[in-house]
Design a protein around this nucleic acid. Structure first.
Length: 573
RNA sequence: GGCGGUGUAGCUCAGUGGUUAGAGCAGUGGCUUCAUAAGCCACGUGUCGGGGGUUCAAGUCCCUCCACCGCUACCA
């Protein structure tokens, strides 16, 4: 049977994550997995921190703490944010602590080497003797040989936009410490991407169905693909396999090589924790697996080209990505999120004031699926107030409080003589409703959010048309049937909501007097007249209370002012 | 420079070459009172960024120009 192996881009353990990361790669994956499971599919959701690389060593040294301590801090901090948002991974680990990671990364390297997809090259690079490391282009600054701009970056001149090679600087300086680096020769292993392309990857990519914003982009990249270095001169990382390295020391696998292998090693870690050490193979080396990578657009070349090339080059039977639902970028109030620039939302403060479940819904409803989008405070308020509080929250309270008052807190039964007619009115005359799962499976989360609201509105129309408060006086039996029908529909709404807002869905389920988990009831089949009711009649309601507190204008104005103030203070230094 | 994306109603956005281009929000008017002053109904002539072209037919395909954004692969 088909099974779904879902991954979210491994967050880099070098700083806090913001809502842009959350909606780009994590929240959609969580909703996807929850939906699949409610539909009875087998799914595994894997994530963890990416913890190697030079940016981390620089950060740790700046903070004066050991590398492992540094990455542990961010691994924990990032996970805390995920926990607050209700993101549930089956395994959460880190590339520097996962017990299988180093061994498996070396295994990848060895297999790829043995299969003839690695080449060695000697190059000359700038080396900073103060920081004791080779400098990436961006870590070098100097005078542009083209236009004379004195603070050109090693990769590109900000003034004349010319591509640069830092070796061409007459006066190179290390961006970290300001001293002059020296030239050194060094040998590295390169992944022979053109060879993988010609043997397999080119035709695989051409014949694979990609999300529209992914396909054209990577097809074009295949033409200019070049070998990529996969080793690096530093100490923090996975050491080269000793049998390959020989007498060469001081090299580790480059972070972008070992990071995606984390998906596999974390799966092994999960299997081990389940007491089935071999179970990971069922997920990674079985053609029934559908591998889905949720990422931001900056990761497209990596997950659609490089990682598949690595998987193929091992010739170890690994599955390749089935879908890569990459999102575009998510901004904040018209500008890019910038932690260092103060243009961000401090999450501790945010979650002290605002509901994490409502935030999940808003992020999904505004997700950057086809183009960049943004978190906008006024939109957030409108979404919470008009869609969640008014359309869904009020539907629940208006119906259940009515039931509470007139039926002694028990959901009435729908009289058999009313059922066919009420089904017809509800299902065909009160507006269109759709199945959010269809949209979710197509990675259209904004559309699914709309459908959720539309579905709730169907019941609001039904209540208005039926006017049970009048029937109560003229035809009490019919009033009871109407309320019974509304309660049943709310049960559907709760299940449709469950992947988006699991806690709120559960709260509705409890208000309906149902025990157990709402997700245990599974995903609802599209309601069909005569057979859609769950049979809630007779249930004793739980305590009925408002689900979504409203956010007032003053609160929003204060948040916008605080955001601008933060940015201003950072700009002033 | 190269590549990619975006440009549709006041705002945020949907729109698989084919009837008079849609939704939500905001706005206006009416109805209702069960409910978190919530709900329902009605009301949208917008050079679909500009200009060419293909087609019986283009927001939808092609070319070009303009604007904005991103990427450019040793910042992982």
């Amino acid at each position: 049977m088909t099974r779904y192996l879902v991954t979210s881009a491994l967050p880099y353990a070098n700083g806090p994550i913001h809502f842009g990361h959350v909606i780009g790669a994590y929240l959609p994956a969580d909703v996807y997995v929850r939906t699949l499971r409610m539909q009875g599919e087998e799914a595994l959701y894997v994530c963890g921190a990416d913890e190697h690389g030079v940016a981390i060593t620089i950060g740790a040294e700046r903070d004066g703490i050991a590398y492992p301590e540094y990455v542990a801090r961010w691994r924990t901090e990032i996970k805390r944010t995920f926990d607050r948002l209700g993101l549930e991974f089956d395994v959460w680990s880190g590339t520097s602590i996962s017990p299988f990671h180093a061994e498996l990364s070396q295994d990848f390297f060895r297999r790829i080497d043995r299969n003839g997809f690695l080449v060695q090259r000697e190059t000359e690079q700038l080396y900073c003797t103060t920081d004791r490391m080779f400098l990436a282009d961006r870590y070098v600054t100097g005078t542009c040989p083209s236009c004379g701009f004195e603070s050109a970056r090693g990769d590109e001149c900000p003034r004349c936009a010319k591509w640069l090679n830092p070796l061409d600087f007459a006066d190179p300086r290390c961006k970290v410490c300001g001293t002059t680096p020296e030239r050194r020769r060094t040998t590295h292993w390169y992944l022979d991407l053109p060879k993988v392309r010609d043997e397999f990857l080119g035709s695989w990519i051409a014949n694979h169905e990609w999300k529209p914003n992914v396909g054209a982009f990577i097809a074009n990249q295949m033409k200019e693909i070049e070998p990529r270095p996969i080793t690096r001169d530093m100490s923090w990382g996975v050491p080269l396999p000793a049998d390959t390295a020989g007498d060469i020391t001081g090299k580790v696998l480059y972070v972008w090589f070992d990071a995606p292998i984390g998906y596999v090693s974390f799966t092994r870690e999960w299997a081990e924790s389940k007491g089935e050490p071999e179970a990971w193979k069922r997920w990674w080396q079985d053609s029934q697996t559908r591998l889905v990578h949720f990422i931001g657009k900056d990761n497209i070349p990596f997950h659609c080209v490089v990682f598949p090339a690595m998987l193929h080059a091992t010739k170890a039977g690994y599955v390749l990505p089935w879908q890569v639902p990459a999102n575009e970028f998510y901004n904040l109030q018209g500008r890019k999120f910038s932690t260092s620039g103060g243009w961000t939302i401090p999450l501790d403060e945010f979650f002290a004031k605002f509901d994490a479940q409502a935030t999940r819904f808003y992020l999904l409803a505004s997700a950057p699926e086809t183009k960049d989008s943004e978190f906008n405070w006024k939109d957030f308020q409108a979404c919470n107030n008009a869609q969640l509080a008014d359309a869904i929250g009020n539907l629940v309270t208006r119906v259940l409080k009515f039931v509470d008052k007139h039926y002694a807190g028990h959901i009435p039964a729908c009289a058999p003589e009313h059922e066919a007619e009420l089904d017809r009115v509800l299902l065909t005359e009160c507006g269109a409703f759709g199945d959010p799962a269809e949209s979710i499976r197509a990675f259209r989360f904004r559309r699914a959010a709309e459908q959720l609201i539309e579905n709730a509105r169907v019941a609001n129309v039904f209540v208005d048309r039926s006017a049970p408060w009048s029937l109560q006086k003229t035809d009490p039996a019919r009033a009871a049937s109407v309320l019974a029908t509304c309660a049943e529909w709310i049960g559907y709404v709760a299940r449709w909501m469950a992947p988006f807002m699991p806690e709120k869905a559960q709260a509705i389920w409890a208000m309906l007097g149902q025990s157990g988990s709402v997700t245990a009831r599974g995903w609802p089949a599209p309601p069909v007249a005569g057979q859609w009711r769950l049979g809630l009649a007779g249930s004793k309601l739980g305590a009925v209370a408002g689900l979504f507190p409203k956010i007032d204008d003053a609160t929003v104005a204060a948040e916008i002012a605080a955001l601008e103030e933060r940015a201003k203070q950072v700009a002033a230094g």
